[in-house]
Design a protein around this nucleic acid. Structure first.
Lengths: 196, 196
DNA sequence: GAATAAAACGACCGGTCGTTCTATATTCCA
DNA sequence: TGGAATATAGAACGACCGGTCGTTTTATTC
């Protein structure tokens, strides 16, 4: 890895941490530069615009999501076990990975009516992430764990709602039972999808 | 209504519109002053700090939520009809009321790890709003529409998830079937709560 | 190790932010 | 209606924003 790639990567690592706390808009070049201990202009040269930096941060988040949530879950047996692993790792991701909660969710709210390349990139990544849910549900159908007439698009919507509510109850309301609620909501979702 | 109260109210009206689009942090005094056609300092004197303004905007949003969503729903018959009205009006509120989506949800993501008076105020209002859901579910139990062992706290978590997912699918992903998904998710929620 | 290319620096740009000040205009009540 | 209280204006503040510049230092390559 060349020097350039190395610093670029360490910039993005810090940038991801910061923007998980304060959002992609709240991420300022000055503060970021101080965190990576280099000059603002030197840092800036790596991205040539703040928009590019924001997009790069989103890409970094996506990579890390794949490493930490998606790939490990894919090692589980097809069907419900894999789906369950996906869900569990996702909860863990929202707890630990960034002190400030899932960047995708933060950014989604920030950019939901701010058109431009950052929003486009975010939508791309979010679609990928939601597709992963639908795909996991599809496999459950193929394995016979789920009813064959299950609407996986609907399943994706419901799954996402459980995660979003988790972030609210845990981070904002700091509800001690947030995780219990999440688990019960997930179980209800799964059991409504299984054949009876 | 005195002149002061009148201008204060018109400031807050505009401020609510703006911050629904760009969030409470994105709300700037300069832009707000321009919108209400007065000087920045003249406007500022009404609140004496931005934090106070942000809190006042949250209060205004809460009042409007009560007027548009809560009060009308309370006029419906107790039990499921009232709950359904609550849900429907809530969806409508997220569609129409502010071009930028529900301020509470936006602010919740903005402030979920930014302690201070604004966050505290937000949590208060959000708790009220979530309590309204739990109360509606409680009435459903008392009317015999819902199982007597239903966990209304859990119900509240699930209900909130349906609404949050709606905002994502509709505003960010601009999914044409967002409303269908919301309805089906709500129906599944209700039917899992009814006695069988 | 010298030549060249890339990366980092620090000063600086115009602009906007929230906030403070003083001075003037307006509203309100005796 | 006169005078105190209040609402507004306008200019200015220090801090910070994203972004640009020429220069210097550091890596890379022959």
């Amino acid at each position: 890895m060349s020097k350039s790639e190395e610093t670029r990567s360490s910039i993005l690592h810090q940038a991801l941490d910061i923007s998980s706390e304060v959002g992609l808009e709240g991420l300022s070049l000055g503060i970021l530069a101080k965190r990576v201990e280099m000059s603002k202009s030197g840092l800036y040269a790596h991205f040539s615009s703040k928009e590019n930096l924001q997009c790069a941060v989103l890409d970094t988040a996506a990579e890390r999501f794949i490493d930490i949530v998606l790939s490990p879950a894919l090692k589980q047996p097809r069907g419900i076990p894999r789906l369950k692993a996906l869900f569990e790792r996702w909860l863990q991701w929202e707890d630990d990975e960034f002190s400030g909660g899932c960047l995708f969710i933060t950014a989604a709210t920030e950019f939901d009516d701010r058109p431009g390349p950052v929003r486009d990139r975010l939508v791309d990544h979010l679609r990928d992430v939601l597709d992963a849910i639908a795909r996991a549900a599809d496999i459950c159908k193929k394995e016979g764990h789920f009813r064959s007439d299950l609407d996986t698009e609907q399943f994706r919507y419901d799954f996402w709602g459980v995660l979003l509510s988790y972030q609210h109850f845990r981070r904002l309301l700091q509800h001690p039972q947030a995780r219990d609620y999440a688990h019960r909501a997930f179980e209800r979702l799964v059991s409504s999808a299984t054949p009876h």
